[in-house]
Computed example of a mutant assay.
Amino acid sequence: MTDALIQTFRRQGRACQNLGSPFHAALLALAADDLEGGWDGAGLFAPWAEADAMAMFADAVPLRFLGGLHDMVLEGADAELAAAYPAPGRAADPARAWAAARAAVAARTERLAAFMAHEPQTNEVRRSVCLIGGFLEVARASGLPLQVFEIGSSAGLNLSFDRYRYDLGGACVGPADAPVRLDTDWSGPAAPVDAPLQVAARAACDRRPGDLTDPAQRRRLLAYIWPDQFERLGRIRAAIDLALELGVKVDAADAVAWTRERVAPRAGRATVLFHSVFWQYMPAESQAALAAAIADVGARAGAEAPFAWLRMEPAPPSMAAMEVRLTLWPAGEDRVLAEVHPHGAWVKWAG
């Protein structure tokens, strides 16, 4: 297990560096060094004892670990650890933070193990800036109000996408007074911002939805935002406040069963099923079942009741790039709309 864990930590560290978190990159490098030196992680990684490096990376083991540490910082449960973490106006100290993290692992093993037992549930609000072009495209093509269904919704922050204000390379869309404002480095053709975007109904599900009224669950969402990315933290806090104000609800349900039960074309509306960075966490058999359920909905679509499948997911087969893809029935046309940054920092729009 140790060799695979070291490989996984180093790979995730490179990813963190490339995605703008030098603090997490440094922390994972120090952890990998100590693993090579014989540190065993106090049994935190025992659930993955039989996993290879690829399986550990797919199961987001390093991100679970980093999230557990950040959760303690956000709660104020470890003053020494918190003092070494980055904060506005204060540089991070990775070496000090790792020393404190090792001590925290030894002292709070059960707490960290409990946090790591569930897969990450990120709610990166800026992914809405990647998806908004797809919603606009459906609105443009159909000319109808949308009824939207999100699967793998976590706490449902992206379900309020139409309440956000977007700057898509100078082309703006969304309420001018929106408390959540999202921009991106947009390239390619302009998005169809003049499309009649109206959301008539919305619903969402997650196997384990985040309850935003629970401080611990709100903190869990924040814990998966990298601590040296202050703008991301600010955005998600604003989105949480708005979701609480709007009373956003997410059903606790399996995505396959929920799609079969809830999602259906409706005359006079364009039905949209959407998800972001969700598919890769599903077992292969669940992916196949969900794809079949979506195809069944598509088969029931018509000119007056179109159905769209909009998703932001890693592009197969390499999974190295992130793309936004749209399938629109009744024709069933499938196309890649954009290549995007995992956290929405840039969008290369094809349209």
Results as ranks from 00 to 15, higher is better:
234 G>Y: 07
97 A>P: 05
117 A>W: 12
337 L>W: 05
178 A>R: 09
176 A>P: 03
127 R>H: 11
60 A>R: 02
225 I>L: 15
231 E>I: 14
9 F>Q: 08
79 A>E: 15
270 A>R: 01
344 G>P: 02
120 P>N: 14
244 L>S: 04
61 V>R: 00
71 D>G: 08
304 E>K: 02
347 V>R: 00
270 A>V: 03
137 E>S: 08
102 R>E: 10
224 Y>I: 12
214 D>C: 05
185 D>Q: 12
102 R>T: 07
107 A>N: 13
290 L>V: 09
17 Q>P: 09
114 A>C: 07
58 A>K: 12
222 L>W: 11
245 E>A: 14
192 P>S: 11
324 V>L: 06
5 L>Y: 00
213 T>R: 13
125 V>D: 01
153 S>K: 02
27 L>S: 02
12 Q>G: 07
105 V>N: 01
117 A>E: 15
170 G>N: 14
163 R>K: 15
140 R>N: 06
78 D>W: 02
342 P>G: 12
217 Q>L: 11
290 L>Q: 06
246 L>Q: 14
93 D>G: 08
77 A>V: 09
268 G>Q: 12
132 I>E: 05
197 L>P: 04
306 P>G: 04
294 I>T: 03
227 P>Q: 12
22 P>N: 08
255 A>D: 08
138 V>A: 03
301 A>C: 00
233 L>T: 10
10 R>F: 10
197 L>Y: 09
116 M>D: 10
264 A>I: 11
169 G>E: 12
282 M>S: 04
336 V>S: 10
250 V>R: 00
65 F>A: 01
191 A>K: 02
101 A>E: 00
180 V>D: 00
50 E>C: 11
70 H>T: 09
5 L>M: 07
193 V>E: 03
306 P>S: 05
243 A>F: 01
122 T>R: 01
100 A>V: 07
292 A>R: 13
176 A>F: 07
150 E>P: 00
185 D>M: 10
124 E>D: 13
192 P>Q: 11
136 L>F: 08
133 G>W: 01
317 P>L: 07
5 L>V: 06
329 W>R: 06
66 L>N: 02
42 A>N: 11
15 A>E: 15
264 A>M: 11
14 R>Q: 15
101 A>C: 01
199 V>W: 07
303 A>H: 02
157 L>H: 04
343 H>R: 06
340 V>P: 01
106 A>M: 12
270 A>S: 06
338 A>F: 11
207 R>M: 06
234 G>H: 05
175 P>R: 11
172 C>K: 15
319 M>H: 14
170 G>Q: 14
17 Q>T: 11
309 W>C: 01
297 V>C: 14
255 A>T: 08
53 A>P: 04
59 D>H: 07
158 N>M: 12
79 A>L: 08
77 A>H: 09
237 R>K: 14
200 A>S: 10
52 D>S: 12
149 F>H: 11
43 G>E: 10
187 S>V: 11
205 C>E: 02
269 R>M: 13
54 M>E: 15
128 S>F: 12
53 A>I: 02
194 D>P: 06
57 F>Y: 15
206 D>I: 06
270 A>D: 05
64 R>Y: 02
270 A>M: 05
